[in-house]
Structures are given as C-alpha cells and as structure tokens.
Nucleic acid binder design. Structure first.
Lengths: 253, 253
DNA sequence: CGTCTCCTTGACGAGGATCAAGACCAGTGG
DNA sequence: CCACTGGTCTTGATCCTCGTCAAGGAGACG
C-alpha cells in the first residue's frame, strides 16, 4: 500500500455532469447549494492499491466517491484488521462538520475518482447554506443503522449467514426513488482477504463457503472477482435479514 | 418484558436543574435553545424491565436519559439477539430529525427517567434554532465511530479481549472538559446474558472469563452486579484499545 | 516458462458454543 | 427461623464451527 498524492484533474467540474449528482447527499442539495458545491469542489483521482488517507491522518477535506470503490480499514496493534465497509459511488468519506482526523485507513480497490471539498470550504458551505448540514443527517443516521446491522452480523451470525448477507447486500441496487432491483451478477473488486476482514472470518472460510454455495447451486463463480446469483431466495433466507432493509449511501469518518 | 406506558411526571421541569444538562448534546445548547427545549420537554419515567419502545414502533418522540440505564436490542427472527449498546445518562434515544420508526427495542435495566420531546416539537426546535441540528452532529458522528469500534471488537477480538474492553470502557468516566477518570468500581445493572448479547458471546463464556480475570487478580467480583478493578493496566493491555479513545454520549435510533 | 499473488482444498486443533448439573441468592410463606 | 421456589450465575463435559497450518492450483505478467 503506497501513499500517493491525489491527482487533481479538474477544478471547474460541475455537479450537472456528475454521475452521482442524483445519489445520496448530492441529491438533497438545492440549486444554490449545488452551485456552491460545484464551485468549491475538485475532482481527485486515486489509483488502485494506494491510500487516500491513513487512520489518524489530519482530515483536511471531504470526499464523495464518483467512481470506483474504496475500503475503510481499522486495525489492531498486532496486525488484525477489520474492514468497516466498502465505499462506492455516492458514498462519503469525511465529516461535513470537518473532523480533526480520519478514523480509518482508506485504500482504493479500483482506480477511483472522488469529488473533493476542502475542510475550510465546508465551513463556508454550511454557514451560507443552512440545508447543507441537514442534507448529511440522512447519511449519518443511515450509517449508524448500517453499523448496527454489521454488529448483529459479526456478533450473532455464522459464516454461511455472513457470506449470504454480504452477497445479497451487494446485489441490491437502490434506485433514486428508493425502490430497488436485484442484480444477478455482482462484482467483487476486493480480495478474499478483504471479504474475510469485513465479515470477521478468515480467507479460507470465505473460500470454503463460496464453494459450498456453488455446490448448492446458489451461485456461480464466474471468476475471482465476479459471481452470478442463481438463487436469490435461498441466499436471502440464509442471510436472515428483513426484506425492506436496504441502505443507499454510506459515510465514513 | 412488559410494555408500559411512560408516566409523565412533570411538564415544567427546567434544564437548569437537570443532572445531564452539562453532558452531551444538552451541553451544546445555547441559552435560547435551552429555554425552548425546557418548554417542550417533559420527564418520563420507565420501570426496570419494561420496554420504552419495540423495534419497528412508530417513533413519535426523542428521549434523553437523565437517570438509569436502558439496553438497545436488535433481534434475528430465530431469537438470537445482539445488544447494540447500553444507553446511560446523557445518551439519546431517537433521531433529532424525527425518524419514522425505532430500529431497536429499548428496555430499561433500572428504573429510569427520560427527558422526552415529541417529534412534532423537534421540527419547531430545529427550524427556530439553527444550532439545534448541529448540536447533534457530534453525537451522531461519535456513534458512528463507536459502532465501528464495536465492529472491530465483534469481528476480531477473542473472548477475553472483549470482556476486557467492556470492563475498561465502563470504567471510564468522561468529564465535561473531555478529560476522564478511571473508576475502580463499576456497576453492571445488566445480566450476564445481556453482556453476552452485547459482546457476541454466550452467558457461560462471560461467566468463565470473569472467573479467569478474578483468578488472575485483575478484578474482584463484589457481587453479581458490581466488580472492582484491581489491575487497570493489564485489562487495558488485554483490551488492545488505543489509549485516548474515549466516547462520551451515544445516540440510538 | 518461471515467478508472484491470490485462491482453493485438506488435515488438524482450539476456542467457544452447547448441554447439563449444581450453586447462589432474594423473595415468599410457613 | 427455616424451607421452598424461581431466577441467575458458575462450573464441568462434550461437541462443533471455524481458525490455523500446509500444500497445491490458477491466473497474471514479464
């Protein structure tokens, strides 16, 4: 994992052309706030495998992912690590109020593009636009619930249930109107180790359980980073999750 | 667990006499907001063992705990349950923006007193007082971090480490100025089963590990609901947590 | 074709769950 | 005062899921 400075590619990119302007927090911006965000934000590019920030780093910006996927890692001193989540387009990295430091290490799983807003500009945005903070309240309370769900998964589910939950969650594509579609093919840009670190398992268990699912014809393993879901219902039953419980965008601090 | 209606004991209680007015979100209220909150809030009492709300219940109020302790439970359909946290004085139950339903079942571990504000009054508070929402931003981002820590605990720590984390966390008393003191005696108003459900263990494992700690002279078990810490350092080492990482108030949705 | 990384599979063992029994304790009633 | 009762906690014996260790397979890339 090599730290790279982010490349800033464009300083006048507009929200109107942004692929995530209709998702998550951006969706909730009013017209004038959107103009202001457009003015203050720049695109940043980060290469696959390099770190956006390390846990404890001074946080001088807020990022919204436009493209790619980034993992959020928390580590214990002896090397054990827990992946807190995978950030995807529309998801936020950073605190809209401007926190002092990052809580996680963020590493790009794929080449990614981020919308970057500097902390000092955040203060201006929130004081000029009263709806700015409340636009984030949805995201933060959503994230609290999601981490509660992850607590349940890590505390009370067995390996097969964890993998089933992971797969079904990635297969849900939430639409702008909060309806959703179930995808048949999902991409896994992360390694098996990343999945294991996310689910509180080992790489061997992840591999084994995927093989079990394959043998039961629940999934088809297209290749290392892509699986096809053959039996949504059985997986959903294994995941033992409420129907209806779908999350859209996440926020990482 | 019997549902009881809350008893409202006083409608004109002032924040100025409130035991938690100097904690958490209340601490951040300005004078005029504090007056307004005083006007809209009432005290509510809930008896040990009864439920404040069940997961999925319509949320028509926000609560701040003044006295007592309340557990927040999430359940799987087959009866397994995960306690997401224990809410204590200064902690919040509910969403300042007014959510539609509660995510957890809340049950009082002791007779408790709560400051209750109705959802419809929340809207008024937040529109009249721009600082109202931002006062909660600290709490929600704090809660996100805390649940991330709990993910690490549940995903990557072994039983002894989990218990050590639990004990050391409860032994930290955060002061108003964010300094803290380490308590030598801690109360455990919850049962061993509650502790197990919080830590992703079974009741037997909790009991065994406490006995191990006792035999190593790390703790003294005064009685079922009270333990004395004899060796803070060893427990802290077992917990493998960053020094410095202390949370004050929590929020549950 | 060799090397590197990642993934899969097998054998084995350990940590914690499960099952079962008994201890402790508060409350209740004789 | 003691016996009884029900709930909670502790302790022991056994089992099983998943972690650990080890080896081999499959791609990617030079």
């Amino acid at each position: 994992m090599i730290r790279t400075h982010l490349s800033v590619v464009s300083v006048d990119d507009s929200c109107f052309e942004c692929p995530v302007s209709s998702k998550g927090v951006c969706l909730r911006y009013g017209a004038s706030l959107r103009d202001a965000v457009s003015k203050y934000s720049v695109d940043a590019i980060i290469k696959k495998g390099s770190a956006l920030a390390y846990a404890g780093d001074r946080a001088n910006a807020l990022f919204i992912i436009k493209k790619g996927e980034i993992k959020a890692i928390r580590s214990l001193r002896d090397g054990r690590q827990q992946i807190v989540g995978f950030a995807r387009p529309g998801d936020i990295i950073g605190n809209p109020q401007g926190q002092d430091s990052f809580d996680c290490t963020f590493e790009a799983l794929t080449d990614s593009v981020l919308c970057k807003t500097r902390t000092k500009d955040l203060h201006k945005l929130s004081s000029d636009h009263p709806e700015y903070n409340s636009a984030f309240m949805d995201a933060v309370s959503n994230e609290i619930l999601r981490r509660g769900d992850q607590n349940v998964l890590l505390g009370r589910k067995r390996a097969e249930e964890r993998l089933a939950s992971f797969i079904t969650e990635r297969a849900i594509d939430v639409q702008h109107d909060n309806s959703f579609v179930k995808l048949d093919v999902i991409n896994l840009p992360m390694t098996r180790l990343d999945i294991a670190d996310y689910l509180g398992l080992t790489i061997e268990t992840v591999s084994r359980v995927l093989t079990i699912f394959k043998n039961r014809n629940l999934i088809k393993i297209v290749n290392k980073s892509r699986i096809e879901i053959l039996d949504h219902d059985s997986l959903a039953a294994l995941a033992c999750e409420e129907e209806s419980r779908h999350f859209n965008t996440r926020i990482f601090l």
